[in-house]
Simulated assay, not measured.
Amino acid sequence: MTESAVGGTPDVDPVEVLEVVACRVGESWYGLEVGRVRQVDDCPPTTRVPRTAPAVRGVASVAGEVTVVVDARVALDSSPDDGSDRLVVLDRGDQPQPVALLVDAVADIERCPVETLGRPGPDDTGWAKAVADRESGPLTVLSVERIAETVSTANTRGHGDFK
């Protein structure tokens, strides 16, 4: 998304920004591209599915659809927060199985100038696709496709190999 730095004034160079939904998991901040988030809500009751990876918390009914719930705290090696679970339902385009990410908190939409984005360091999940350098600390931008691939791989193998 490209936007002018000052209210669309033609004499100012446009600044390319990436808009993300900022989520906290433990003490760390993560972002999911705005266009890839379908909804954010409280986490409904989940039903554990046998022989899935530990990070797959189970399935839940979200807006009338059976949705796979992935606990980001487990996948990202973070300890649980105070129990104020927020569910971020991911938009996977034409993929039939909805997937949602369970996080500790959802803050707001952050606008990250593209020039502040850097390559992520190694992470156990492979979910990171960029890191935004912010005054308040780094924000790791996660890939919806990589999260969904991890769930698909875990389901195919019967128990998965991620956390």
Rank of each mutant, 00 (worst) to 15 (best):
A63Q: 08
D77W: 01
Y30F: 15
G26K: 08
V89G: 02
P10N: 03
D81M: 11
V131N: 07
G137D: 07
S79V: 12
D108S: 12
G26I: 12
D91W: 06
L18C: 05
D108R: 15
P14H: 11
A63K: 10
T140F: 03
D41C: 14
D108Q: 13
T67Y: 09
V12D: 10
P44E: 04
T46A: 03
V62M: 08
V17P: 04
V62A: 08
G118I: 04
E27D: 15
A75M: 14
T156Y: 03
R157H: 08
L142R: 02
A22H: 06
A154P: 05
C23Q: 11
G121Q: 09
P120D: 03
L102D: 07
P54I: 00
S61I: 13
L101C: 09
R24W: 09
P14I: 05
S79D: 14
S84K: 11
A53P: 05
D42I: 13
L142Q: 08
V114N: 02
G126S: 03
V88D: 06
V20L: 06
G121C: 03
A105T: 07
D82A: 15
R24H: 10
V89F: 04
V151G: 02
R24M: 05
D41Q: 12
V59P: 03
V141M: 10
D94S: 13
V89I: 04
K129M: 13
E135S: 11
G7N: 14
D91L: 02
G93P: 08
V25I: 13
E65Y: 01
R119E: 14
R86E: 09
R157P: 00
V37P: 10
L117Q: 08
E135A: 15
E3G: 12
F162P: 00
P96Y: 11
V68E: 00
S84D: 15
G7L: 15
D94T: 14
A148N: 00
K163I: 02
N155W: 07
